[in-house]
């Protein structure tokens, strides 16, 4: 297994080969970065797996098509791919009036600009992003009533069954279903309300 330095050199060689016209050289890079782009950049911002996959495909196609616009700076190509993905996610949201409110909320909550000081290692960057998403979600969850927060925690995060969730909350399954439904509605409303808070980012 090559070390990080060797991996970066290999990445640079592949990028330069693609820029010389052999677009197929991008394949190993796309296969390496498709999963973190999907899991930590696109899906958390879209919420729909099918659309997320479409956006991923579009992102990778655009990156290959425009590889000549990328300038190697001694860091992985991942931040550049990430920014293309984010732009496309926002295009999807803006095109859909229905999801515009959620999109505006996400624009406030999840970073859009790639931090130039971010880790040079793509996987670390993806992990940092997931940690950052989780923090923001937990912050929003913290503003919900306890029972709503617990319902979401048990069912969506810990993935306990409906029956187990109901048992822990000492309610029937039907009541738990109502609780979870209201909890997600409340979270969505809370997230939407936070969109009205001024962007605290510098």
């Amino acid at each position: 297994m090559p070390g990080p330095g060797a991996e970066l050199e290999q990445e640079q060689r592949l990028v330069e080969e693609a820029q010389r016209g052999n677009l197929d050289a991008m394949r190993p890079l796309l296969e390496r970065y498709a999963p973190p782009l999907y899991g930590t950049v696109i899906l958390p911002r879209l919420g729909d797996a099918a659309t997320a996959e479409d956006v991923l495909r579009d992102t990778l196609a655009t990156a290959v098509e425009k590889i000549n616009r990328f300038t190697w700076q001694g860091k992985t190509i991942y931040p550049w791919l990430r920014q293309i993905a984010i732009n496309k996610v926002y295009d999807v949201h803006r095109a859909s009036k229905r999801s515009r409110r959620l999109a505006d909320a996400l624009a406030q909550e999840l970073p859009s600009e790639t931090d130039p000081e971010a880790s040079p290692d793509a996987m670390m960057m993806a992990e940092e992003e997931r940690t950052s998403h989780r923090g923001r979600i937990e912050l929003a969850l913290g503003e919900l009533p306890d029972r709503y927060r617990t319902a979401i925690q048990l069912r969506l995060i810990e993935e306990l069954s409906r029956e187990e969730c109901a048992r822990r909350l000492e309610v029937t399954v039907g009541t738990f279903d109502v609780l979870l439904h209201r909890a997600v509605r409340a979270f969505r409303k809370k997230f939407g309300d936070r969109a009205d808070v001024p962007d605290p980012r510098p």
Binding site: T62, A63, K66, R69, F70, T71, Q73, P79, W80, Q83, I84, N87, T114, P116, E117
Partner: peptide
Amino acid sequence: GQVDAAMSIVDEGLAA
């Protein structure tokens, strides 16, 4: 003096 950050901004714009 934030030259790398400037390059990221430019490259992202050209890519988009």
